[in-house]
Computed example of a mutant assay.
Amino acid sequence: MKLLFVCTGNTCRSPMAEALVRKRLPQVEVQSAGIFASDGSAASHQAVTVMEEAGVLFAHQSKPVTKERVEWADLILTMTEQHKQLLLEQYPHTAGKLYTLPEFTAEDAGASWKLLQEAYADLETKRVRFASGYQGDPNRFQSEFMQAHEREVAHIRELEAAMPATDIMDPFGRSVDVYRETLKELEFYVDKLAEKIHNEK
């Protein structure tokens, strides 16, 4: 498997994830890149500090996302939903291999999205029906519709709250303690990634 991690500047999150995968999954070919990265910038000193604390080899120079790197990868994992959407705009053909790291590793993400999409579709059908027979003040339509379908709206909010997180916290420019928290988050998801790759063999 060829795996590409993507973040913004390729000096914190994606290279940290890359280094963790190199240690945890030596059989996986892995690279990292940044959507707005330049070539050859050093990793942030806070990232170097926390990786050394964790005993992970971490020698890194930043690289930008390129067509060649995108084509090379069998799987592209971004740090945030925004990174994912930006890549989809530029490389729409990657849709089948492009996920956020939390999204890809969440066991129930697909089922959760399906339930949420069905609930949205059901509410939209009811909104169209409500609109067709609505005789009140047009300015009050939305609030009256929401009140009339309070239970459905509450259900959607519950589903949204239960959705797996899709973003890895950005520690850029913050304290070493924040970088430690980001590292813990990355370690959690890389462990889940390792389990998923192992189970798919």
Rank of each mutant, 00 (worst) to 15 (best):
L20H: 12
R22M: 10
R22L: 13
L25F: 05
P26V: 03
P26D: 05
Q27R: 14
Q27Y: 07
E29P: 07
V30G: 01
S32R: 01
A33C: 04
G34C: 06
I35R: 13
A37I: 03
S38E: 11
D39L: 01
D39S: 07
G40V: 00
G40K: 07
G40C: 02
S41W: 01
S41M: 12
A42M: 05
A43N: 01
S44R: 00
H45K: 05
H45D: 03
Q46G: 03
V48R: 00
E52F: 05
E52L: 06
E53M: 04
G55N: 12
G55Q: 09
G55P: 02
L57Y: 10
F58V: 00
F58P: 00
A59T: 14
H60C: 04
Q61N: 13
Q61A: 12
K63F: 08
K63H: 11
P64T: 07
V65E: 12
T66A: 15
T66V: 14
T66D: 06
E68C: 12
D74K: 08
L75M: 04
I76T: 13
L77P: 10
L77V: 10
T78M: 13
T78C: 08
T78Y: 05
M79T: 05
T80F: 04
T80N: 11
E81N: 07
E81W: 11
H83I: 09
H83W: 11
K84M: 07
L86V: 12
L86E: 14
L87R: 02
L88V: 11
Q90D: 09
Y91D: 00
H93P: 04
A95L: 13
G96N: 15
K97E: 09
L98P: 02
T100R: 08
P102R: 07
P102S: 09
P102G: 13
A106T: 04
E107Y: 14
D108M: 00
S112N: 00
W113Q: 08
L115H: 09
L116P: 03
Q117A: 01
E118A: 06
A119F: 08
A119C: 07
Y120K: 03
A121C: 13
D122S: 15
L123S: 09
L123T: 15
T125E: 15
K126H: 14
V128W: 10
R129W: 11
F130W: 06
F130M: 04
Y134D: 13
D137S: 10
N139M: 13
F145M: 09
M146E: 11
A148W: 01
H149S: 05
E152F: 02
E152I: 04
A154K: 11
A154H: 08
H155N: 10
H155L: 06
I156C: 08
E158I: 01
A161L: 02
A161E: 10
A162S: 05
